[in-house]
């Protein structure tokens, strides 16, 4: 029976770090987009007071928490989910699936269709957040990449797309 052995597989620190960075930036970009973009603002207005959602990777993260504070402002709330009440929990099943999504080889809608994610929460809320993520990706990414990531690339005015992009990047970087 010398063919038997036990193995403890290691981690994937670089992939986790990349996904953590992307989630951090996307979280701040959603906060910015809720101030800059009318459609994102409206999506959040429809969500209940104090609504909080988490997007992360199973089994041990990283995570991104975004929610509405007491003044109804959309805020990126960091990556720690402990002690928070999460209304919508969107988990990518593993780090490789997250890499496919965050390297834009698979859009959010495609990843969902391929069962890469588990959603715990109300479906209408999940649909609203997927729409917000899609809008965020259109702002953050050049068209050639964003059209791979979103379900349908929108037709926007020059002002909305490019001025909005500059404002969202600026706000995301400074965290305002």
């Amino acid at each position: 029976m010398n063919e038997f052995r036990e193995v403890t597989p290691g981690g994937k620190p670089f992939k986790k770090a990349y996904v953590a960075l992307m989630l951090w930036f996307v979280g701040r970009a959603i906060q910015a987009a809720a101030k800059v973009d009318g459609d994102v603002k409206k999506e959040f207005e429809k969500l209940p007071e104090g609504f909080t959602f988490c997007l992360g990777v199973m089994p041990h993260g990283p995570y991104m928490i975004v929610g509405k504070d007491r003044k109804e402002r959309v805020k990126y709330m960091g990556w720690r989910r402990e002690g928070r009440s999460i209304d919508l929990d969107m988990k990518i099943k593993n780090i490789e699936a997250a890499i496919l999504m965050f390297t834009f080889q698979e859009g959010t809608a495609v990843a969902t269709a391929r069962d890469r994610m588990v959603v715990d929460g109300e479906v209408p809320y999940a649909c609203a957040i997927v729409r917000v993520l899609d809008i965020g990706e259109v702002y953050l990414l050049p068209k050639i990449i964003a059209r791979l990531a979103v379900k349908r690339y929108p037709v926007w005015s020059f002002g909305r797309k490019y001025i909005g992009r500059v404002r969202i990047y600026f706000r995301s970087i400074v965290g305002y």
Partner: peptide, 17 residues
């Protein structure tokens, strides 16, 4: 296969004989 368990925190037994 064991590579697929990286980052999962799961240890595996292997018998390849």
């Amino acid at each position: 296969i064991t590579g697929a368990f990286r980052d999962s925190g799961i240890a595996v037994g292997i018998f390849d004989g």
